[in-house]
Each structure stands twice: as C-alpha cells, then as structure tokens.
C-alpha cells in the first residue's frame, strides 16, 4: 500500500467536524468515489469523530489518499488521548453504549467501511483506522 497524500486535522470542538467532513468529501471526490460510497465513508467518520469528541476529549485526525494494487482509497485515522476503552470486543457489539446513545457508533462505522482497526489502552487513549476503497463494497 502506498500513501499518495497526507494531512492532519485537529478536532477540538463540534464545529471542526463540519470542516473535517467537507475535507473527506473533497478527497473522496478527487479519487472518483461514488456518491453512495462517499456517504458511507463520511457517515462512518462522523460516528468516530463524535466518539473522539465525547469520550476522548478531542484529538487528531489523519486524512490520507492511499493506493493498493493501483486501486485508490481514503484512509482516516482518529487518535485521541482519552481514557481509552476497557473492553473493545464489548464496545464493538451492536446496541452497547456507556453513554446514552443507540450504541451503533463503532459497529455501525465498521459496517460502512472496507477496513477497520481499533487499538485502545485504558488510560492512554484510542486509535481507530478506517479505509474505504474507491469501488469497495
């Protein structure tokens, strides 16, 4: 996998989310991703960035255009230094939430992207990486 472009965006307040979403849309449009796939990617990002703001107290996002076997895709990394998740397996279950949400955030986001990776250490923070390929299902 090759990284074709790279940028960083800090998310500290809700208004940053709007800018962040627009930036993803620009990247996805640039590689010619279909509207449905774009919507799935941005919705997943929206879920993850909310988690980051609500539970992780904000953090840094990385936006990258990557390419594997000459198929382009968008990779997003969400890194916070919040309290972390105690039980990642449990957090990935549909309907589980420590807050008052529907508990669809993490598992829902996973269903909306092609590749999903979560690393979390209690007390140190959480890092989520997602990729959506241009024509991925």
């Amino acid at each position: 996998m090759i990284v074709l472009s790279k940028e960083k965006l800090s998310i500290q307040k809700e208004q940053d989310v709007v800018l962040f979403r627009n930036r993803i849309k620009e990247l996805a449009t640039k590689i010619g991703m279909s509207l449905v796939n774009q919507t799935k990617l941005i919705t997943a990002a929206s879920e993850l960035v909310r988690n980051m703001l609500r539970y992780g107290g904000g953090g840094i996002t990385h936006l990258e255009i990557v390419s594997k076997n000459s198929i382009p895709g968008v990779r997003l990394v969400f890194a916070d230094e919040g309290p972390g998740i105690k039980d990642v397996t449990l957090a990935m279950k549909d309907g589980y939430s420590t807050g008052k949400s529907l508990g669809l955030g993490l598992p829902g986001a996973k269903r909306l992207v092609n590749e999903f990776d979560i690393k979390s250490e209690p007390g140190k923070g959480t890092t989520v990486t997602i990729i959506r390929w241009k024509n991925g299902l």
């Binding site: 449905v36 774009q38 919507t39 799935k40 909306l112």
Partner: peptide, 14 residues
C-alpha cells in the same frame, strides 16, 4: 431522504 443516505442508514442498522 437521498438514496445514498437511505442505503447508508440501512447499512448502519438504523
């Protein structure tokens, strides 16, 4: 509701 939004919501489980 836009088609892309509807497809995404279904995938999300909502």
């Amino acid at each position: 509701m836009q088609p892309a939004v509807a497809i995404t919501l279904v995938e999300l489980g909502l």
